[in-house]
């Protein structure tokens, strides 16, 4: 589904990712763990199309060159990024935003757009599953939401948009243990044969609830070690400095 070959990225001539390689097949859950400044967020930004990076190398999503696609086209093809810091958008109603987003994607795919009633039914159902306060859906997007609510809102968006590849950028940070469980349940509910996940995190904690198929350790812009779920536990014990 996703193939990253020799990806290097620079910002203002500072090298962030170097010869990065990763392959994610349909249905797989990959976790990338790494210390601060190792390039984790850069990776998620580049995959979702944020401007401002000089890149070389190749990224293929379903065999299509990802760099030839605009940010919104990547969303249309099924890439979703759950932001580390979801933005507050004043004056934009959360429900309106969710519906606009879902219908923009449906339209681009040539699918039938949802009307207001169909949409509300869907969003209510998903909000309930995620224990997301329905009242917040009528409020301005993320404005006045707590850190945990913002993160839950990201997962709500994810479950409504039902992407093929979801990138979770430190979704666990700022979540209390109950919220963490709910978020994990939301992710697990989406785990299907064809849906893949790239989970970016500092800590092993989230991976107790979302069991990854593969764990990669990212240091200084490179994957220095890959393994199964046991690698996360090893990291937790030894720390990033002593892994090799």
């Amino acid at each position: 589904m996703l193939k990253i070959n020799n990806l290097s990225a620079k910002i203002d001539n500072k090298s962030i990712l170097q010869d990065f390689k990763l392959e994610i097949n349909p249905g797989e859950v990959h976790a990338i763990m790494g210390p601060n400044g190792s390039g984790k967020s850069t990776l998620s930004n580049i995959l979702s199309g944020k401007k401002g990076y000089d890149v070389t190398g190749e990224v293929l999503f379903e065999n299509k060159d990802l760099f030839s696609l605009e940010t919104e086209e990547r969303a249309h093809k099924g890439i979703f990024l759950a932001f580390q810091y979801p933005l507050e958008i004043p004056g934009v109603n959360t429900n309106v935003f969710l519906k606009t987003s879902l219908n923009a994607i449906k339209k681009a795919r040539g699918e039938k757009e949802l009307d207001a009633i169909q949409f509300l039914k869907l969003v209510k159902e998903k909000a309930k599953e995620l224990k997301f306060d329905e009242e917040k859906l009528g409020r301005q997007l993320n404005v006045g939401f707590s850190g945990g609510e913002k993160k839950k809102n990201e997962i709500l968006q994810m479950s409504i948009l039902n992407p093929k590849l979801s990138i979770l950028d430190e979704t666990d940070s700022g979540l209390d243990i109950d919220a963490l469980k709910t978020v994990a349940e939301g992710v697990n509910a989406l785990r299907k044969k064809n849906n893949s996940f790239l989970i970016i995190t500092h800590y092993q904690r989230l991976l107790e609830y979302i069991k990854p198929d593969f764990v990669h350790v990212l240091m200084n812009g490179k994957i220095i070690k890959s393994g199964g779920p046991e690698l996360a536990l090893e990291l937790e014990k030894k720390g990033y400095e002593n892994i090799n």
């Binding site: 199309g49 944020k50 401007k51 605009e70 940010t71 933005l87 606009t100 923009a104 948009l161």
Partner: peptide
């Protein structure tokens, strides 16, 4: 620009 990027990552084009 970050808000624009956020909305575009949800499938809206730049104009929208």
């Amino acid at each position: 620009e970050n808000s624009i990027f956020y909305l575009m990552s949800r499938g809206l084009n730049y104009k929208e």
